[in-house]
Simulated scan of single mutants.
Amino acid sequence: MQRLVHRHRLLERSSLPNIKSISPTWNLQTGKLLHEFADNFSSVESFVISPNGKILICGNYDGSIKLWNLEQGKLLHTSRNGSSSVLGLALSPDGKTLASSNEDSTIHIWQIN
Rank of each mutant, 00 (worst) to 15 (best):
R3C: 09
R3N: 06
L4T: 04
V5W: 09
R7D: 15
R7L: 12
R9S: 06
R9K: 12
L10H: 03
L10M: 14
L11K: 00
S14K: 02
S14T: 15
S14I: 07
S15F: 00
P17I: 04
P17C: 06
P17K: 04
I19S: 10
I19F: 11
I19Y: 09
I19P: 03
K20C: 08
K20T: 12
K20H: 09
S21H: 12
S21G: 14
T25D: 03
W26T: 00
W26A: 01
N27E: 13
L28K: 14
L28G: 09
T30S: 15
T30P: 08
K32A: 13
K32T: 13
L33K: 15
L34H: 01
L34N: 15
L34W: 00
H35K: 12
H35V: 11
E36W: 00
N40C: 10
F41D: 00
S42Y: 05
S42M: 06
S43I: 13
V44D: 07
V44W: 05
S46W: 02
S46Y: 01
I49P: 02
I49H: 01
I49L: 02
S50F: 08
S50Q: 09
P51R: 07
P51E: 13
P51C: 08
N52I: 05
G53H: 06
K54D: 13
I55M: 05
I57Q: 00
I57K: 00
C58I: 07
C58L: 10
C58N: 04
G59T: 08
G59M: 11
N60G: 10
N60C: 15
Y61Q: 14
Y61W: 12
D62C: 10
D62T: 12
G63E: 04
G63A: 06
L67W: 11
L67D: 04
L67Y: 09
W68Y: 11
N69L: 00
N69P: 01
L70K: 13
L70M: 14
E71W: 00
E71N: 10
Q72E: 15
G73D: 10
G73A: 09
L75H: 10
L76M: 11
L76Q: 13
H77N: 08
T78K: 14
T78C: 09
R80S: 10
N81Q: 15
G82S: 11
V86H: 04
V86A: 04
V86I: 15
L89F: 00
A90S: 15
A90M: 06
A90G: 10
A90N: 09
A90Q: 15
L91N: 03
P93L: 05
G95I: 06
G95N: 09
K96V: 02
T97P: 03
T97K: 14
L98N: 08
A99P: 02
S100P: 01
S100E: 01
S100K: 00
N102R: 10
E103F: 12
E103G: 06
E103W: 14
S105K: 11
S105E: 14
S105G: 07
T106A: 08
T106N: 07
I107T: 13
H108A: 05
H108K: 11
I109M: 14
I109L: 15
W110F: 11
Q111K: 14
N113R: 07
N113K: 10
